[in-house]
Write a protein that binds this DNA or RNA. Structure first.
Lengths: 135, 135
DNA sequence: TATCTGTTATACTTTATATATAACAAGTAG
DNA sequence: CTACTTGTTATATATAAAGTATAACAGATA
């Protein structure tokens, strides 16, 4: 897998994992219906506990990004992905707010923020344009 | 004060407090050099422990948003506020990334995100335009 | 000399995070 | 049917973060 964990980070492991899986879906590296490693396999692969993997899987299942079946294991949502509904936008706003506030307090202009968002949006959609040419 | 805490929130109290103080600075509700309540006063006011208030104050002092003197207590940075330097932008990018990623995964268009950022930017700078007319 | 300030120290509780084992139930492949 | 792998559940433990409760200290001030 393409997962890279920083065990020294203040960000919980299960959240790092969930974040990178979502980013995989956003970028297309993980396609609809694609099977993911079993909790035991991925745990061994990453050198962490299977419960930590399971916690990330469960969170993404709860959000609708994953489906979990008995023997087939875990697969990326084969149907319609979760949408940016009102509930999500509310949560997104709550999460973004303190970040925007500090940026404002530090004198960042609105267009600087927009530029950063644009850059991140691009990085997430096309991870290949990370350090190489934009081919 | 204008602080409102949600004790049931999953967001730590000290972070809610720090966030709202920063937002106060960003909006101008807290002006340069303005004194803040003592840790004991604010703690009693909010119904929380003085150490929780102190933790928020210390974090903002560490960032450069507050100055703390012996008897005068805590005041909003009277000199130059912290800037949006490289270190901050790096941290901001790291914090924004998973939020942008999920928005992308949920099919949000880039301009929808930009619109949300614009709205938050406005709310933070002018909290009065919250539920009333844009006068 | 009191009083108020931030600060430090100690102790305790609760919750979140992460790991370690073990076992169970449901599919699937032999 | 048997064996294996799957997610799932349960129990236990360890560590850290968050929050509270008290107490005491040192500096500045009225």
């Amino acid at each position: 897998m393409f997962i890279e964990l920083d065990l020294q980070s203040e960000v919980p492991i299960y959240k790092q994992l969930a974040d990178q899986l979502i980013e995989g879906i956003a970028s297309g590296k993980l396609s609809s219906g694609q099977p993911l490693p079993s909790v035991r396999t991925l745990a061994a692969d990453l050198g962490i506990n299977l419960h930590t993997v399971n916690k990330a899987y469960q969170a993404l299942k709860q959000e609708g990004f994953l489906e979990i079946h008995r023997k087939q294991g875990v697969i990326v949502q084969p149907g319609a992905l979760p949408t940016a509904d009102a509930a999500f936008r509310e949560r997104l706003g709550r999460d973004l707010r303190p970040l925007v506030a500090e940026a404002v307090a530090r004198g960042m202009k609105e267009n600087e923020l927009q530029t950063l968002i644009t850059a991140l949006y691009g990085q997430v959609r096309n991870p290949s344009s990370q350090g190489g040419a934009s081919t």
